[in-house]
Write a protein that binds this DNA or RNA. Structure first.
Length: 478
RNA sequence: GGCCUCGUGGCGGAGUGGUGACGCAGAGGACUGCAAAUCCUUGCACCCGAGUUCGAUUCUCGGCGAGGCCUCCA
């Protein structure tokens, strides 16, 4: 395709922007680190989900929907999950009515379901594959990559060793530190982590650790145990995308150690020069100017924004949250605030509402496309969209183009539904009000207007240009 | 201590070696019985210092400031 838009992406590996060239344009492959399912997802989790959803839409637009594979995992094995299961089901486990594994499964199922409903409300497309870590611990019937096989290969190739009841990755490997630009030897001075004596190098990390009988575990060549934190992404990316793929994404904080370790594991296990060609990282989210943390009391969950009145004293529609997120470039830090959400809502209210949220027949606006092609400049894209919205008011082609362009960002405003009974009655109420106005009964007319507004219907008075008669129209107030 | 980001008007936020992007909010106006919506007009900026340059917000160096990672974290 000669007319394919040139997509440029910032690559953390090279700390620079470069044209994106897929390994195989017929099968463009992207992996994004998904949630560890032990608690409600917060807006910090929402950012990569939204950002890489835009990238997914962009890739599908450029290369074709069937030509893009997007994998986002669910990590359902983690000591935080175990702790949560004990907290929530400890009594049941003690009473013998629930096993630990059952309790863990309940925690992960509930949290994963919540996550899915949250991100659906944010207007994100489901990924092509959403593998769960627990299904990739042991060797699989279908022959896809698994964690134990990867660890075996790492040991066989001399990159991992057993010590102190653990299997550890040997970070003396020469490629270690390329992504995060770290030299581990130089970091010893201020390192806060105590050096375990059984490690060959202080930075060596766990691939496999033994479980006590009370802890969840899987049988392995090294005894019953559970995987370390990083190996699941190496396994699941290889399982669906192969040993080398195009794009790997996640939050800034994952650069070290998570992604650095993933690279080390995958490259050493497979003997490859690269794990993913492009590494992309989104910036952090702050809340009202402060770091979000449970101790600060400003921990904001997606669910809390959508369904409760804990932030700014009201609920927020998913599309408002999404637009608010896209009003800042993905690599910049973002300050999540009530003011920002209000601005996003105002902007959205000015855009023409389509029923479908689908691209429809229109062509994507060149300015929107160019903005997104430039390392996902969603800010410029939103502003191009805003300009397009002005034209769309009395230009059907522009309106169609707006829908197609907005769909690429995933922010297509949908019409708000009102009850049919209300809608059917509006015209007669307007007539009644017009007669009151003729009689100069302004108080009565204004009351009607206020009552309708309370029901979500905004009246707008205008003049018929020919006759000078008052003409009242209405729209659904979003 | 080491390694990374970043610093633009009230707020958000692009961009560029050489005439104030833009959006939101504000102010003024048109329209209106009053609103809402819409339209028009308008004020406000590039952290500090040095260097390179005819010229720097844009490049280089230094400083100051903010944030992140080095420990679970998106």
């Amino acid at each position: 395709m000669a007319d394919r838009p040139a997509l440029t992406l910032y690559n953390t590996l090279t700390r620079s922007k470069a044209p994106f060239v897929p390994i195989d344009a017929e099968n463009v492959r992207m992996y994004v680190c998904g949630p560890t399912v032990y608690d409600f997802a917060h807006i910090g989790n929402a950012r990569p989900v939204i950002v890489f959803d835009v990238l997914y839409r962009m890739l599908r637009h450029v290369y074709g929907e069937a030509q893009v594979t997007y994998v986002r995992n669910i990590t359902d094995v983690d000591d935080k999950i175990n702790a949560r299961a004990l907290r929530d089901f400890g009594k049941d486990i003690d009473a013998g009515t629930v096993t630990l594994n059952e309790a863990i499964r309940r925690v992960t199922e509930k949290t994963a379901n919540q996550f899915h409903s949250d991100v659906a409300a944010l207007g994100t497309l489901p990924p092509t594959h959403e593998p769960r870590a627990t299904e990739f611990v042991q060797k699989r019937q279908d022959g896809r990559a698994d964690m134990i096989t990867l660890i075996e290969r790492l040991i066989a190739r001399g990159h991992a060793y057993q010590a102190g009841g653990e299997v550890l990755f040997d970070t003396s490997w020469s490629g270690y530190g390329e992504l995060s630009k770290r030299n581990l030897d130089e970091q010893q001075a201020g390192a806060r982590v105590a050096v375990d004596s059984h490690k060959k190098n202080p930075g060596d990390f766990v691939l496999w650790k033994l479980s006590s009988p009370e802890e969840p575990g899987w049988d392995s060549p090294w005894g019953r145990g559970r995987p370390g934190w990083h190996i699941e992404c190496s396994a699941m990316s290889a399982a669906y995308l192969g040993e080398t793929f195009d794009i790997h994404g996640g939050g800034l904080d994952l650069i070290f150690p998570h992604h650095e370790n993933e690279i080390a594991q995958s490259r050493c296990a497979h003997g490859t020069k690269v794990m993913a060609n492009v590494w992309m990282h989104n910036g952090f989210v702050q809340v009202e100017g402060r770091k979000m943390s449970k101790s600060e009391g400003n921990f904001v969950t997606i669910h809390g924004l959508l369904a409760t009145e804990t932030f700014g004293g009201r609920k927020w529609p998913g599309e408002v949250l999404r637009l608010a997120m896209l009003m800042t470039h993905y690599r910049e830090p973002i300050d999540f605030s009530v003011k920002r959400l209000e601005e996003a809502e105002r902007l959205l209210a000015k855009w023409p509402a389509g029923n479908t949220g689908e691209a429809g027949e229109g062509t994507v606006d060149p300015a929107v496309l160019a903005a997104l092609a430039d390392d996902l400049n969603t800010v410029a894209a939103v502003q191009a969209l805003h300009a397009l919205a002005h034209k769309a008011a009395n230009d059907p082609a522009a309106a169609a183009s707006f829908q197609a362009s907005a769909a690429l960002l995933g922010v297509s405003p949908k019409k708000v539904e009102i009850s049919e009974a209300l809608e059917a009655g509006v015209d007669s109420i307007i007539q009644l009000r017009l007669e009151m106005l003729k009689a100069k009964n302004f108080a009565g007319a204004d009351k009607i207007r206020d009552d309708l507004l309370a029901k979500g219907i905004q009246l707008k008075d205008g003049k018929d240009p020919a006759t000078g008669e008052r003409v009242t129209t209405w729209e659904v107030k979003r």
